[in-house]
């Protein structure tokens, strides 16, 4: 279609993004999410301080409690909570306007459908990212006067990666919302994907690895690499393992920890010194970014061709 070429227009998507954001501020979602993220990120730090857990751990293990340790612990919860919130904020971004009819007002104006999709992604990303930033800032304020050692680099990385995870799921959700005609379908699609990532992706990765070994005769090493790469394709796992290595764990150990417990330790031994590039940190980051971009692009193609 020739209007594909029309694509994005200067500033137009920004007008939509601003409207999205203004609309959401009035709905109080932003404030509710900020409170939520403050409690998720800052509360553990506050509790640790209150119960003197830092002293306890230090006396038991000789290890100083840092914000890196806090981030590592919190990231487990964040890897589930942030995607769920991003989905809730964005799954109906386009379908709701389509069902209600306000999309007709929007597209009566000189906006392209690309402007609408990008404006939605940017606007709703703000709705997810700003409360995360607020949560992080308040956490910092809570932690600074305590004995918990504040590691600025790790803390900023944690904040940025968590925002990126949220934005990736906003992209995924807006993409699905652009490609479907009702909010109900969009919800089934986005929630279904999340549940799949969370519960079934690992067995899918293991299954494919096993299948390739049994039927394509790949070597055990290759099987391990393939399985790890497939695990890494899961955005929540890419987030966690990337954060682990960014906070100072060796990259190969961080990747091996995508397997839990003893298995993780065995895998770490096998990976030591021979980590392929497609399991590196760059790839993990690229995968997170791809989850932002690819669903948006696919959703746009369907939306562009649709009769509204």
């Amino acid at each position: 279609m020739s209007s594909d070429i029309e694509g994005l227009t200067d500033g137009r998507w920004l007008v939509i993004a601003r409207k999205e954001f203004a609309d959401t501020i009035r709905s109080k979602v932003l404030w509710i999410l900020s409170v939520l993220f403050v409690s998720v990120f800052a509360l553990p730090a506050a509790l640790a301080q209150y119960f003197d857990i830092g002293q306890f751990i230090q006396s038991q293990t000789g290890q100083q409690v840092t914000t890196n340790l806090l981030a590592q612990q919190t990231s487990r919860l964040a890897s589930a909570l942030v995607p769920i919130i991003a989905i809730a904020v964005a799954y109906a971004a386009i379908t709701r306007e389509r069902e209600k009819g306000s999309l007709k007002l929007l597209l009566s104006l000189p906006h392209t459908r690309a402007d609408v999709v990008v404006g939605k992604v940017v606007g709703r990303s703000g709705v997810v990212a700003v409360p995360i930033a607020v949560g992080m800032l308040i956490t910092m304020a809570v932690v600074l006067p305590t004995q918990i050692a504040f590691k600025a680099g790790g803390f900023v990385t944690f904040a940025l990666l968590t925002m990126l995870l949220g934005v990736a799921f906003v992209g995924l959700s807006v993409g699905v919302s652009a490609a479907t005609s009702t909010s109900r379908r969009s919800m089934v699609g986005t929630v279904g994907l999340f549940v799949y990532f969370y519960l079934f992706w690992n067995s899918f990765a293991r299954g494919v690895g096993q299948l390739l070994k049994d039927h394509a005769g790949i070597a055990t090493d290759t099987q391990l690499h393939v399985t790890l790469f497939l695990k890494l394709l899961n955005p929540t796992q890419a987030y966690q393992t990337l954060l682990t290595s960014a906070l100072g764990t060796e990259t190969y150990v961080a990747r091996a920890r995508m397997f839990s417990g003893l298995m993780g330790q065995i895998v770490a031994q096998q990976l030591k010194g021979s980590l392929p590039f497609y399991l590196g940190d760059g790839m993990a980051l690229a995968i997170l970014l791809a989850w932002l971009v690819v669903p948006v692009a696919l959703g746009y193609v369907v939306f562009q061709a649709a009769d509204l």
Binding site: S3, E6, K19, R26, G101, K104, L105, S108, P110, T112
Partner: peptide, 20 residues
């Protein structure tokens, strides 16, 4: 898009943005 730059529309079956 060029057409809609120069066109004003009152569509049928629209709805407004409730909160704005």
């Amino acid at each position: 898009q060029a057409i809609r730059e120069r066109t004003g529309v009152l569509p049928e079956g629209y709805d407004v943005y409730d909160r704005l």
